[in-house]
Amino acid sequence: MAAAKSKDNSKADGAENGIAESGVKSVSSAKPTKYGYFLGCVMPVKMPWAEKATMTVSKHLGLDFDYMKETLCCVRPGVWKAMNPDWWLSVTAQNLANAEKQGITIVDTCNGCWISHYESLKELTEEPEKLKMVNEHLGKAGMHLKGDVKVKHYLELLHDDVGMEKIVASVVRPLTGIKVMRHIGCHARKHDETLPNDFDEILRATGVEIIDTPYDKTCCGLLLYFADSNQAILERIGKKMMTAQALGVDAYVIICSGCYDQFERGVKIYREEKGIIFETPIIHIAELLALAFGYEPEDFGMTKCRPIAADKFIEKVRAIAAKNAKAAVEKKKGGESL
């Protein structure tokens, strides 16, 4: 099964990276995995705070993690495969060939980018005729793809290569008392429930409480928006954001930049066309990790350029941290007086 195969690769990478199961760096002569962060279209333009948080968290965890250079659109399988599957394979192969040349494992935080890279690589390595066809086009641009490259979802990287023990051990500011709704996105659950489970496990490691709702598994409506705007916005984003508002959760946590694009679109449409203002901030999982690891919101621009301000959320995180610090001091005092 595709996802299972991907998992096996992850474990091998974790070992290569010298990160033992205990979360402590092990002595290994194997070459560490070099991860290349594939930004895609949305992340660098609409979510700079998430980009910065992802870079910060990854370096904090000791990974050899840097930007993948010369990245282009992934390209979106929903649009390109619908037009012509061979076009999709030919164009997405440019990114795969670049990664292969740069000697990196591609890391995607966007589910759309991940599924495009993951499935095209699978198809190209399993069907030599397609690889040949793609290489004919790449060759005209002076490029070549052997298929010797790995693709990882960021959740896979965190959960399997870094490991939960290390993530838990890195939490110095538990976000206990913060209630969140979460949206994992369709592509992340296409093969099985591994990535959604990883998502929840990592979220819980930060200390937040996940509130389950009937809208957790519904699509964000990104591609549906092309076909039916009302269904995509009112029935998807609208239902999700209204539920978050009604439940009074502190944040709506996402991982996928494609989904975020649709959340942002929905929030703006509600504000501009319906006069409805949502107040639940949409937060990237890397931001939660950065906060839990002790970084300040200003360190990664959490207070900047977002459609729903995160001020109240930040205020609550700080209040919880202050309360926990006070409790720790009192506990210490109590211990000393015994």
Binding site: P44, P48, E51, K52, E70, L72, D299, K304, C305
Partner: peptide, 13 residues
């Protein structure tokens, strides 16, 4: 926006 978040003004895309 990118500069305000501590990133390079142009992404490495």
């Amino acid at each position: 926006d990118r500069a305000a978040c501590g990133l390079s003004r142009l992404p490495p895309t």
